[in-house]
Simulated scan of single mutants.
Amino acid sequence: MVGTKGAKTSSRLAESMLELIQRHGYSGAALNAVVEHAGAPKGSLYFHFPEGKEALGEKAVELAAARFGSLVADSALEAATPGEVLRRVIDELAGMLDDSGFQLGCPVSVVTLEMGAQSERLRDACANAFESWIVPVSEMLIAHGRPRLTARALATALVSMVEGAVIVSRAQRSIEPLHCAAQAIAVLLEQDREVSA
């Protein structure tokens, strides 16, 4: 029972860190604010994350990676082609951005930009997160007939395009950049399919 309660507290802290990173950036996610947001006892943060903010940030990045991975996987179950999968993912991201008033961005890109040069631990967590998105997209492309090296390169470009579109959408407070990315991805996948055929 104690273990379950502790796991729930640890999970709430990571969830709160993730949300605060999305809203205020890594630097703006103060530990006291995380504890307050999570409704956790004050001493619980260092009990669950004895290595401090970087460890909690790493957990938040892992959580974000898993959520985006689930979004891709769920979209793949409902769509027949890679283009349709990515369109569903982009539509979902556009909805999240719009619903949040363009306050919630991708925490992985935020942490990369803020901490990538300062913390090897957080840079590695972000690199692993991006890799966890590139690999399934690459595997999906391979399953649809792309050669392995081509699929890997294309998957890397597609993930990068979506990430960039999220950033531009937040800056412009418009989902139009995401829709433009979706259109460009559809063209890119169609051209690549013709070349690979």
Rank of each mutant, 00 (worst) to 15 (best):
M17G: 06
H144W: 07
C126T: 13
I185H: 05
A38P: 04
R12M: 10
S169M: 05
A76L: 11
Q183N: 13
S109F: 06
A29T: 04
A38E: 07
V2L: 12
S119E: 11
P147M: 05
A33C: 10
G105Y: 02
A157V: 09
V187P: 00
S27I: 01
A171C: 03
G57H: 03
P136C: 09
M96Q: 15
C106P: 08
L63M: 15
G164Y: 02
T150I: 07
A38N: 10
N32K: 07
L56T: 00
M17E: 05
E62H: 13
V137W: 05
G28Y: 06
D124P: 00
R67P: 03
V89P: 01
K42W: 05
L77R: 13
R88M: 08
H48Y: 12
T112W: 14
A65Y: 06
V135C: 00
E163H: 08
A151K: 09
A151R: 08
T9M: 05
T156S: 13
S174H: 01
A155K: 09
L20G: 13
R146I: 00
S169G: 06
A197V: 04
E51H: 12
R170P: 04
G43V: 00
K53R: 15
L158K: 09
E92S: 13
R123V: 01
K42T: 05
M161F: 00
R87T: 14
R23F: 06
A184Y: 05
S169Y: 03
A171S: 11
A76D: 14
A33Q: 15
L63P: 09
F49N: 07
R12C: 02
T150V: 11
L86H: 05
G95D: 11
D99Y: 00
A186N: 03
L31C: 07
L13H: 02
R67G: 07
L20S: 11
P82L: 07
R121L: 13
G116V: 04
R152Y: 08
I175W: 00
L71T: 12
E54M: 12
M115T: 01
G43P: 03
S75W: 01
K59P: 01
G105T: 02
G95F: 01
L56I: 07
A55V: 01
G145N: 05
C180R: 12
S119G: 10
R170K: 15
L45V: 14
E194S: 11
F49P: 07
T150R: 11
M115V: 02
L188Q: 13
V85W: 01
V89S: 01
Y26L: 15
G52C: 14
F102H: 12
V187S: 10
N32M: 03
E51V: 03
D74Y: 01
Q191Y: 02
L86D: 01
A143S: 15
G39H: 09
L154V: 12
E51S: 14
A197P: 09
G116W: 02
W133N: 08
S132T: 06
L154W: 01
K42N: 11
C126F: 02
E176Y: 10
E139L: 13
R173C: 09
R88T: 10
A127Y: 04
R152Q: 15
E194D: 08
L31K: 07
K5V: 08
V111A: 08
P41T: 02
D91P: 02
L86R: 04
Q191C: 06
L13F: 05
A38M: 10
A129V: 09
G57W: 02
